[in-house]
């Protein structure tokens, strides 16, 4: 791991992370984009910063083959997506069908029906 670590890589990673953080901050603080695009953008910025830090701080992807660390990370990220996205989709369906006090709001939003 330490073969890949140089002062330069840490400085580059640090500066890029600051830029990405501030970018996301200003986008939200000044509401520069529409809601859905804003959401996608800040999540995208977070993912890019994740990759920057993985590369420059944790030196992932520069190890010699076989790149177990990278493969394991990718597998876990896949499972994390299943957990988080799966939970959101499933519970939104469950709430729609099963939570009576929200039902009026859902019916209005999703199907344009007044209770």
């Amino acid at each position: 791991m330490h073969k890949n670590a140089t002062t330069k890589s840490y400085i580059v990673g640090f500066l890029l992370s600051i830029v990405l953080t501030l970018a996301a901050y200003f986008l939200v603080a000044n509401h520069l984009l529409a809601d859905k695009i804003l959401l996608t953008s800040i999540l995208g910025l977070a993912v890019v910063q994740l990759m920057i830090q993985l590369l420059f701080f944790l030196h992932l992807g520069k190890e010699k083959k076989p790149r177990w660390n990278l493969m394991i990370l990718i597998s876990f990220v896949g499972i994390i997506l299943i957990i988080v996205v799966g939970s959101i989709i499933i519970t939104s369906h469950l709430n729609y069908n099963m939570m009576p006090k929200d039902m009026g709001q859902y019916m209005l939003q999703e199907e344009g029906m007044q209770k």
Binding site: A5, I11, G13, F14
Partner: peptide
């Protein structure tokens, strides 16, 4: 974030 950077410099 800065602390993560300084940690890297420490390493």
């Amino acid at each position: 974030l800065t602390s993560s950077f300084t940690c890297g410099l420490g390493m």
